Structure formats: C-alpha cells, structure tokens
Simulated scan of single mutants.
Amino acid sequence: MSEPAQAATACTDGPLLEALMAEVAVGDQDAYRRIYRALLGPVFGLVLRVLRDPAQSEEVAQEVMLEVWQCAARYRPERGAVVPWVMTMAHRRAVDRVRQAQRTSAREERAAAHAHTTAFDEVAEAVEDRLEHERLRRCLTALTGLQRQSLTLAYYRGLTYQEVADLVHAPLSTVKTRMRDGLVRLRDCLGVHP
C-alpha cells in the first residue's frame, strides 16, 4: 500500500491511530511520522477555516502536531478517538491565535489613540507658546526705546552688556540700569512674581 493510501486509511482507522498514539507516547518516532502524515492535512484544513490565512494556518498546524508529540502520553482512548482529540487541540490553538490577533489589534488601537492625544497636546502647547510670545511682544512695546533695544540685543542676539552699550552709544552703567528696569517692568507686565 502506498504512503498516501496508508495515511488516508490511518486517518479513518481509529484502532490503528490509537495503537500509533500508544507508541508515540513512549517516544516512537516512526509512529509519530505516520500520525503526522495522517493528521496534518485535516488539522491544517480546520485551522485554515478558522484563521483564513494560509501562512498562519501552517504555523498553527505545526504547533498542533508538535503538541501531539509532546502530549501523546495524556491521550486516553476511553475518552474519545484520536482524530477528535487532535482536532480539538487544533481548534483551540486556532481560536487562541484569533484572540491573540484581536488583543494585538486592540493594543495598537489604544497606542494610536494615545499618539493622537499626544499630537493634540503638542498643538495645545504650540498655541500656548504663541500666546506667550504675543504677551511678551505687547509688554515689550510698553518699555522705553532704550530698555526695549537693550533687552532685545542682550536676550535675542546674545550680546554682552558692553556690546549693547557700544551699539546703542550709551554708557555701560546706563545700559545695565535700563536693562534692570526693563526686566522689572516686563516681570510686572507678564504677571511673574519673584
């Protein structure tokens, strides 16, 4: 009898499968090969009907057949035939894979929602920065010309007191005083309390 014919017979012959399972339970690799050939097709078919993805179905079918090897000693013929026992394992594995995919999808959706919230926070932060700049600009216009010019040169262009004094053609002590007075007026205008 050819191997495919033996596999087809083994798939329908309950007593033969039970005998093979008993041999697999004690580590007989040849018996496992025969069971593997007989059951891989039906296991793959069942898993494919649940998952609808051939690549994942192949992977799950391999996991089921490995589980048959590892759990053969737990098989009890009095509780049922080999094929339903293996098919139950296959169905459970396939359903577990579907649930795992659903959990992964839910996790990704939560992460995307969180990322969307973060983007909103960034927009809110940008708006807040813009409002602060507007308040600062308004307060700067309330300063005297020398105060505004000195503070702008020092804080926005990074110049030293001496460089500011040289550019505005004023004594160093005058520039320092005007900058100090300008900072006090800015603090009061912005509502910043020391």
Results as ranks from 00 to 15, higher is better:
S2T: 13
S2F: 08
A5P: 05
A7Y: 09
A7V: 06
A8M: 02
T9R: 14
T9M: 10
T12H: 12
D13T: 03
E18T: 15
M21Y: 01
A22F: 12
A25N: 05
V26G: 11
D28I: 10
Y32V: 09
I35Q: 09
I35E: 09
R37V: 04
L39G: 01
P42S: 04
G45F: 04
V47K: 11
L48C: 12
R49C: 07
R49V: 11
R49Q: 12
S57F: 04
Q62P: 03
E63L: 09
V64D: 08
L66W: 14
L66G: 06
E67V: 02
E67W: 01
E67I: 03
V68N: 04
V68Y: 05
W69K: 07
Q70N: 12
Q70K: 10
Q70P: 02
A72Q: 03
A73V: 06
R74V: 02
Y75M: 01
P77C: 08
E78Q: 07
A81Q: 10
V82Q: 00
P84C: 04
W85N: 00
T88E: 02
R92F: 10
R99W: 05
R103Y: 10
S105E: 15
R107P: 00
R107G: 03
E109G: 06
A112T: 09
A112F: 07
H114D: 11
A115Q: 01
A115N: 01
A115K: 03
T117E: 10
E122D: 11
V123G: 01
V127C: 06
V127M: 06
D129L: 12
R130Q: 11
L131R: 09
E132N: 05
T141P: 00
G145H: 11
S150E: 07
L153E: 14
G158C: 08
Q162A: 13
V168G: 08
H169Y: 12
P171G: 13
P171Y: 03
P171N: 14
L172P: 04
V175F: 07
K176W: 01
T177V: 07
T177N: 08
M179V: 02
G182F: 00
V184S: 05
V184K: 13
R185H: 01
V192W: 13
H193N: 08
